[in-house]
Write a protein that binds this DNA or RNA. Sequence first.
DNA 1: CTGGGTGCAAACCCTTTGCAATTCG
DNA 2: CGAATTGCAAAGGGTTTGCACCCAG
Lengths: 133, 133
Amino acid sequence: MAERSTPPQRSTRQRRALTALLGETDDFHSAQELHEILRSRGETMGMATVYRLLNAMADAGDLDVLNHSGEAIYRRCSTEHHHHLVCRQCGRTVEVSGPAVERWTQSIAGEHGFSDVSHTLELFGLCPACQGS
Amino acid sequence: MAERSTPPQRSTRQRRALTALLGETDDFHSAQELHEILRSRGETMGMATVYRLLNAMADAGDLDVLNHSGEAIYRRCSTEHHHHLVCRQCGRTVEVSGPAVERWTQSIAGEHGFSDVSHTLELFGLCPACQGS
DNA sequence: CTGGGTGCAAACCCTTTGCAATTCG
DNA sequence: CGAATTGCAAAGGGTTTGCACCCAG
């Protein structure tokens, strides 16, 4: 069932550029942002390619994907599972991890007979710097 | 600054119909679903109106809004804070609440100096009925 | 009456897809 | 060389908006 043969990923100029860019930052960016950044650096590549690469990488588990009000935002996948505490004013992001939450989701889901559980959790607030404004 | 005069909400046939429909169910529905249900009942109203009403109600804090892969889903706002366990196959929704999680988010945010914290948490999985499919 | 509400359709935004040209291996 | 990959532009799905008409107050 579901034989998952490794897709024969070619190493193209575009893939390298995108991979490199994603490697530089720790923040989430939309496909459009990534595309624009690459363009501003002289790397020409079409939106379609950006989306295709992004989807492929995400499917391969190399990227984390969040959904920011109808827009997908990507980030290189960190090896660990964690969540984000985002300042709703300046956008500053802090990574947080919580074994407690992970355990809680598992047990809750189990109680209701759900299997194959995943979850999304995001925290929003005002960071210290933005509280005075 | 920002004088917030109460928006003069008129009680129209459309608004009543939508409000009534939302009052009947406890599940999340997309704008399109709501529109279709209303139509099937003989209530004629345009998509634009549904979206406008939905947005207005959400802004007014009368509705909970979730984001299900690029699609907004709405539900009448329950007075209590809780989260949802959603079957990613059939869409069945179970409400769950977790004091543990609430406490965790507060403390984590506090540790990083963030104030005015809110959070979104959604659980996805396969419900018992869908596990055999 | 009169201004907010509504409907229609066009506009928008983000994302996906068909197909020919290109490029990696 | 041959298959995977790219680019372009058109298509798609969800949501918003301009504008003329309509109805609640």
